[in-house]
Simulated scan of single mutants.
Amino acid sequence: MSSRLKKKRVTVTDIAKEAGVSLKTASRALNNSPHVREEKREAVLKAAKKFNFRPNISARQLASNRSYVITHFYDNLNTDYLSKIYTGMQQACHKNGYYAVAEATDCSKKKFIQQTLEYVSTFNIDGLILSPPLCDDAALISALKKQGIKMVLISPQETSDEDYFVFVDEEKSAFEITEHLINIGHEHIAFLGGLKSHKAATDRQKGFVAAMKHYELTVSRKNIKSGDFTMQSGHDAYVDIMKKLPEATAIFAANDEMAMGVIMAALNDGKKIPEEIAVAGYDNIRFSSLFWPSLTTVSPPVIEMADYATGLLIRLISGETVKNKSHEFVSEIILRKSTNKKQSSKK
């Protein structure tokens, strides 16, 4: 049978015969239906792998009235973050026979919700991945739910009992990187936050404040400054911080771009990094390891989060009942050359 199958196009019927199951069972297994026993699913997938079989997408769409397309709607200019989300989506989609699509939108436009609903309807999208700030748009979420559109949220500010989402503990991560700065001897530490409307920025500030208070260090308006997540705002904030807190020996910025702006401003100011001022960021963007000096930062597992979120969405699309609606991921502290031990440690 194997030699004959190599000479002709392999069909689902061939896979069913090889796996010893019915055509209906083989089709369900290949379409990732939850209504298939695990041993039969494994037999079908093993047979499909043996003959390098992938279902024809057009045939699957016609047979199931699905598009097998999952879309990530975004309104975010952070290309590194978006790239990681798309990579994670692709990983999950590839494993399950789906296609990942990234679609930009502008939530400042009056009709953006209507346009989003029209897009989903026109292209018969099976499900959506939403990341900040769209995952925090209550009106959009409500409209999508009314249309019965399945979705999974990445790092939402607030959730309901109906929502499926993935997240990291931003406050804990910020506490830990601030603690790192304290443990290597810094007492006068400034924090450069992001937009106040951004929950992640707020949580990171909370983590910074909690760490400073835990170690009985001073927290005031002098050592907390707001930026807008851009490199320019980091550059400008450094100047303001050093005017108000000239004794500062370390700055923790709420994202890597602002941290890089701080470093450039400090170097222009004649400061040695990290000998005279240490700098830490958040996000572990691609250039954080290539920047000079390389940047100490918090690394959220964005690719893994998007992979899990997409896999969860596919399970929901397939009709599976998922009890655990949320999943927490853990960030990693990446130590690089922008921070090191000071000459005198905190006692």
Rank of each mutant, 00 (worst) to 15 (best):
Trp292Gly: 11
Leu45Thr: 02
Ser142Gln: 09
Ala63Tyr: 04
Leu134Val: 13
Val21Tyr: 05
Thr339Trp: 10
Ala210Val: 02
Glu38Val: 09
Cys135Lys: 02
Ile182Lys: 04
Val12Glu: 12
Lys213Phe: 03
Leu140Tyr: 06
His186Trp: 09
Val152Asp: 11
Ile70Leu: 09
Ala278Leu: 04
Lys199Ile: 05
Asp169Phe: 08
Asn268Cys: 13
Thr249Tyr: 02
Asn32His: 14
Leu192Trp: 01
Arg204Ile: 04
Ala280Trp: 06
Asn255Trp: 07
Asp236Asn: 12
Ser64Arg: 14
Tyr164Pro: 14
Met258Gly: 12
Lys337Pro: 06
Thr105Asp: 11
Asn223Leu: 08
Glu158Phe: 10
Tyr68Ile: 02
Gly148Leu: 15
Gly97Ser: 00
Gly88Thr: 04
Ala143Asp: 01
Asp203Cys: 14
Lys272Phe: 03
Lys325Tyr: 03
Lys24Phe: 11
His186Phe: 11
Lys49Ile: 07
Lys110Arg: 10
Ser197Ala: 14
Phe123Leu: 03
Asp136Phe: 12
Gln232Cys: 12
Ala309Ile: 08
Val168Trp: 06
Phe165His: 13
Val302Gln: 09
Cys135Leu: 00
Ile224Glu: 03
Ser2Ala: 12
Lys347Trp: 15
Val69Asp: 13
Phe329Ala: 01
Val298Arg: 01
Lys40Met: 14
Lys342Ala: 11
Ala306Gly: 09
Asn183Lys: 04
Thr25His: 04
His94Gly: 08
Pro301Arg: 11
Arg41Tyr: 15
Ser338Ala: 13
Ile154Asn: 09
Val209Asp: 02
Val120His: 02
Phe112Pro: 00
Ala254His: 13
Leu290Asn: 05
Arg4Leu: 15
Arg60Gly: 08
Tyr308Arg: 13
Ser64Val: 07
Ala248Met: 01
Lys196His: 10
Lys341Thr: 10
Lys172Gln: 13
Arg204Leu: 06
Leu140Ile: 07
His214Pro: 10
Asp126Ala: 01
Val10Lys: 11
Ala29Thr: 07
Val322Leu: 05
Ala92Leu: 08
His188Ser: 15
Val21Asp: 04
Leu290Trp: 06
Tyr119Thr: 01
Lys323Asp: 07
Gly281Asp: 08
Ile189Lys: 01
Asp163Lys: 00
Pro274Met: 06
Ile177His: 05
Tyr99Glu: 14
Gln115Asp: 11
Ala250Trp: 00
Leu335Phe: 07
Leu134Glu: 10
Arg54Trp: 02
Asn96Leu: 10
Asp14Leu: 10
His35Glu: 07
Asn324Ala: 14
Ser338Asn: 12
Thr339Lys: 01
Lys325His: 06
Ala26Gly: 05
Ser345Thr: 12
Lys49Val: 15
Pro274Arg: 01
Arg66His: 04
Tyr74Phe: 12
